[in-house]
Nucleic acid binder design. Structure first.
Length: 410
RNA sequence: GGGGGAAUACCUAAGCGGCCAAAAGGGCCAGACUGUAAAUCUGGUGGCGUACGCCUUCACAGGUUCGAAUCCUGUUUCCCCCA
């Protein structure tokens, strides 16, 4: 009847991998021990607002951690922040884009989100809650009561608020409420452990306070480091365009992985694969390119199959590492007027009135002058923007290495 | 409620009557090098035209000027300070 949990020390070893901070560290062991002794799974919380949709590798860091907890026999509890999403997320500090989502949109996002999460977490064994279930029922008096539990000084212990306060930048009231709501979720679902990034520390600690006030066992925060994106500097994020989405085709993932700066491979191995760390270390001591291929294959395999991963790697080696032509070259029709002429100036062909490889004729002209334009299987350079190109069906046109197509004469 | 300040191209940011399509950096694109890593170097980075050129752009709408991103008026948005 009791779930057969692995020994506490073994669990700890798995949980600690790729985790930046556990607060408070000692309590985690106690929780695990208690769970082990009583055969009760721990309730592991992870919450997200269903605003954006594309789940990328950065999101999978805590999700993978949740999966590890599941595999150890614990209870996954996913919070969909449908209520907080309705209000509009203020911590999207980049832009003040405040297009308000409708309830339907949020619900659709939530479903879509869960579909993606299901690739990492075993949803059949997870509890899923929407925080609108409780926040939607609150009266204003309840909200005030909740606010009465948190002081401004407490809020200001949060580093980002403190920083903004020091720098005299705006802090809005509803932003202050955000961590409170997030913390209240923990009370509602009685979480034992909460997963998330280190930037969530404040909310996680606040949740402990609130839980204690409600005579509940306080949760332990297990925080992952922020995964850096493909630029190797900033966090992986959709708006930064430096991400690998988990729904991308294997070959797309492969290409992106190979562009990853060497310096961050170590982190990727630790956070995104199960590969024992000493093996990763050995790999990294060898040729970085080989290590990168292994890394890419390991991750791709999680979302597709080993064969898919190998195929993607081989294809990358052939087309990009080697000199083979890309396997799928898009065909592009030439507008009728140009087709009738038979020959076209090179810049027009590449430009927006031709194949559209460049967004303007000026750009095409510059590209050609810079030596980026090539023609045919042998990549014969075009040097003069005004060079007349004879149109023929199937002619391969290159605008740099990454943009290319075949002429389709119909 | 009162006072002060700001809005410039993808971002930061100069410019404060003509020499401004607009400095500089970042980013991005392309080329060399390479392992489509990093570093480095080179060129490019509003549109149209081979080019002297033309057109659109400096929050928005008007105005003053031969001429405005630069001056004036109004509008909008944002920030700060005082109460």
């Amino acid at each position: 009847m009791t779930a057969p949990f692995p020994p506490v020390e073994d669990q700890l070893r798995i949980i600690r991998r790729g985790v930046e901070k556990i607060v408070p560290e000692e309590e985690l062991r106690k929780l695990l021990q208690h769970s082990f002794d009583t055969g009760t799974p721990l309730r592991v919380k992870y919450g997200i607002d269903p605003t954006g949709i594309d789940v990328h590798l950065g999101h999978t860091v805590p999700l993978r951690k949740m999966r590890q907890f599941q595999d150890l026999g614990h209870q996954a509890v996913i919070i969909i922040g449908n209520y907080t999403a309705l209000v509009g997320d203020p911590s999207g500090r980049d832009e003040a884009r405040s297009k308000r989502l409708t309830a339907d949109e949020v619900e659709e996002n939530a479903r879509d989100y869960l579909n993606q999460v299901g690739k990492v977490v075993d949803l059949s064994k997870a509890e899923i809650h929407r925080n609108g279930d409780w926040f939607g029922k609150m009266e204003f008096a309840d909200v005030l009561a909740l606010c009465g539990r948190v002081t401004v000084a407490q809020l200001l212990t949060r580093e980002d608020f403190a920083k903004r306060y020091r720098e005299e930048k705006a802090i809005y009231l509803h932003e202050c409420l955000y961590p409170v709501m997030q913390a209240w979720d923990s009370v509602e679902i009685r979480s034992d452990i909460e997963l998330g990034g280190t930037e969530q520390l404040y909310s996680f600690m606040l949740a402990r306070d609130l839980q204690t006030q409600q005579n509940l066992r306080a949760q332990v925060a297990v925080m992952s480091p922020i995964l850096v994106g493909l630029d190797g500097v900033r966090r992986m994020g959709k708006s930064l365009g430096n991400y690998i989405g988990i729904s991308e085709p294997p070959y797309e993932m492969m290409k992106k992985f190979m562009q990853l700066p060497d310096a961050v491979m170590n982190m990727y191995f630790e956070l995104l694969t199960e590969l024992p760390l000493d093996e990763a270390k050995a790999l990294l001591a060898g040729h970085p390119k080989e290590a990168k291929v292994t890394l890419a294959k390991q991750v791709i395999t999680q979302y597709y199959s080993g064969e898919d991963a190998t195929a993607a790697a081989d294809r990358w080696q052939a087309e990009i590492g080697g000199s083979a032509l890309p396997a799928d070259i898009p065909e592009q029709e030439v507008p009728a007027e140009l087709r009738e002429q038979g020959t076209v100036a090179a810049f027009v062909l590449l430009g927006k009135d031709g194949l559209g490889l460049c967004s303007s004729n000026g750009e095409a002209r510059r590209l050609i002058s810079g030596g980026g334009a090539k023609l045919g299987e042998d990549k014969i350079p075009i040097t003069d923007p005004n060079q007349q190109i004879e149109l023929q069906d199937g002619l391969l046109v290159w605008a740099g290495r990454k943009r290319y197509c075949r002429i389709k004469m119909q």
